[in-house]
Amino acid sequence: MARFPETSSSSRERARQSVTLQDIAAHAGVSRSTVSLVLRDSPLVADATRTRVQASIKALGYVYNRGAAALRASRTFTLGVVVYDIANPFFGAMVAGIDSVLHRENYVSFLANSEDSPERQQRFLERMREQRVDGLLLCPAEGTDPALLTQLADWNMPCVQVLRHIGTPPFDYASTDFELGVRQAVDHLVTLGHRRIVFLGGDARHSATQARHRGYHEAMRAHSLDDVHRVIRGAVTRRAGFDAVQHLMQESPRPTAVICHNDLMALGVMLGLQRLGLVPGEDCAVVGTDDIEEAALSMPALTSVATHPYAIGEEAARLAMRRIANPDGAREQVVLTPRLQVRHSCAPIPTPEKTSYRRYPHATLDA
């Protein structure tokens, strides 16, 4: 059989693999047990000693086999995080909140994007099980079978549901009160004199969408506006908001205010109004949900229901840490209170003589 000479890269790899903890200990002038503590990020090691050992690890080219260590330990210090729309800035803020807590607990996360597909979600969950994650933060995909919670329990995988929930209580859950948030938006618009208030909501049937719709209907009923309530279901994207308001503004009488499922949709609505030569906030009030960073920076600044994604992420991660530490403890639900951030996209209902058609030739929406 022909033999091929060993390459320099493979030689270096073999050398790294041959380095032992005793070699590092001798190089750093410490005990083998101290090296082991440093590799496990133990707080028992002094900072100066930790720095010296880490320098020796780097100098010798040692690579810690965390997978093998995990097989010997009861925990892997990893947490699975499954969301359904990673492109939405809301989830960027939420994941940042999760990571802030995990970093303090010496945990890392495995992030996956289900794209609202239960099948795709299931593949990720199986991979995370193979990686022996200590727990899971799950934003259930639309159409997820509640039996999934039983499966996760059979896997001994602690699960905290985030934003959406499936199954029947009790379960661990972290979110915000979406129903209250929409009620706050309706109440504010009514105080400004608006009656023809349209809700642009999602067409999904999960718990978070249902809560938003419920909040809108209950608030309109409380203000005796059942006769003018209007819900348009569809996608909850910037493009969907842009397209929907084009049609709404052709109606007679047309709405004087629009509440949107999220801020991306509301920003699309404002662009759509500008395309028609209308001024958001003056010719039609616009309210979004989530209060992402872009809301305050838009023109005009968008009134939005702050749902606190960063704080939701923190609370969800803390819930997971408590559940991992105490698997048999009582289930917890943490539901944050939203807050309406009033900005310039809302104004009192316009009178006919004040309604104007100002042209915005540069107001466009990229496909």
Rank of each mutant, 00 (worst) to 15 (best):
Q131N: 13
T144P: 01
G143S: 06
L225R: 05
F171T: 09
V186C: 08
L180W: 13
F199P: 00
T168G: 02
A219L: 09
T237C: 02
L163K: 04
V228D: 04
V258F: 04
L163T: 11
T176S: 13
R129Q: 14
H206W: 10
H165P: 04
H165L: 03
V231G: 06
S224W: 12
A222C: 10
E218G: 08
A235K: 02
R164A: 03
S224P: 06
P146A: 03
A185Y: 06
G181E: 08
V245H: 02
H217D: 14
Q161N: 04
P170Q: 05
P169L: 10
H206T: 11
I197C: 06
R129L: 12
Q246D: 15
L248D: 00
L149Q: 01
H217T: 14
H206M: 12
H213D: 14
R221D: 13
L148P: 03
P255N: 09
P146Q: 04
R132E: 06
E251N: 07
V236G: 00
A141H: 01
T176N: 13
M157P: 05
A153C: 06
H194P: 04
A141V: 02
T150D: 13
G143A: 08
M128G: 03
E179N: 14
T237P: 00
D134H: 05
H229Q: 15
R230G: 03
